[in-house]
Design a protein around this nucleic acid. Structure first.
Lengths: 147, 147
DNA sequence: CTGCGCGTTCCCACGGTGGGAAGGTCAAGC
DNA sequence: GCTTGACCTTCCCACCGTGGGAACGCGCAG
């Protein structure tokens, strides 16, 4: 299978397949005399694996680990689970962060008349909002706007 | 105020202040003879505005619009609200997407023993998961993997 | 005048993805 | 055989923010 066929079979663009080759994630099993990449069923599956993993939000480094675990028939599922759980925690944190943004925005939007007049609580919030506000970096941590 | 002072006053790094200058978002009101950027109170406020807007997840294009509305004393709050609502919808969509990922992952993780054995529902999902899933390419177009 | 901190510009990197140019290859049709 | 067009190759560039750092200029204090 050449790259185009691999692309159709895996649902990964040729650009991305070349990129995965370049970064050493999925190397074609062979090259033809004329330097065309050749992929076999196994690599197609790896490509699909990556596609699926990306759709679950895994980063490339995580996928690299996942893929090497996948290739190792003797992996302990513990390791896979650890990666998944770490990613899950990360995902949850980002969701929480975005929900905080959304909630603030929802409130602000709710308070905004949205008419022809210039008075706008949204701009008002943006204007004064989030002053440096760290006169006492005592025990509190974890600002929304991270620094 | 030079860039360092502006940075302290606004909470925006000097790198970012230069970047905002470069893309024309916030230009220093003046330059000294020796080409140092000079910022006045107004620009410090704009910098803070941007910082706050970014903390709410607005993109640079959105901030560009927001900022020009902020500068216009006669803006209709309608326009501000429209931008905020669009961003909010975008945020909600991304949250939903990430929640779907998280839920799938949570389920998979839950099903994974996480021990020394190699059997792993997480890898199993990744392996076969998300087949191209187009048994009937009838009227539908718009492939995920575009040509 | 020297030293240091701060300013300036310019380039590079990241993560992933896509666009496109310039050139080689392959299969099909004449 | 030769042409054509689709496909392959590599290489560079862009995005969006953000940070790192080099090379060089400036300002203030000793």
């Amino acid at each position: 299978m050449n790259i185009g066929q691999a692309s159709k079979a895996s649902g990964v663009t040729t650009k991305m397949i070349r990129y995965y080759d370049e970064i050493g994630l999925v190397r074609p099993s062979a090259r033809t005399d004329s330097n065309y990449r050749e992929y076999d069923e196994r690599e197609i599956n790896e490509l699909r694996f990556i596609r699926r993993a990306r759709s679950l939000g895994f980063s490339m480094p995580e996928i690299t680990q996942l893929l090497s675990l996948w290739r190792d028939r003797d992996r302990p599922s513990r390791e896979v689970k650890a990666i998944a759980d770490r990613h899950l925690a990360d995902l949850d944190a980002r969701i929480a962060e975005m929900q905080a943004m959304a909630q603030t925005l929802r409130h602000l939007s709710h308070c905004c008349a949205g008419d022809d007049r210039p008075d706008c609580p949204i701009l008002a919030d943006l204007t004064q909002g989030a002053l440096p506000s760290e006169p006492k970096p005592k025990s509190r941590r974890a600002h929304v706007h991270g620094g």
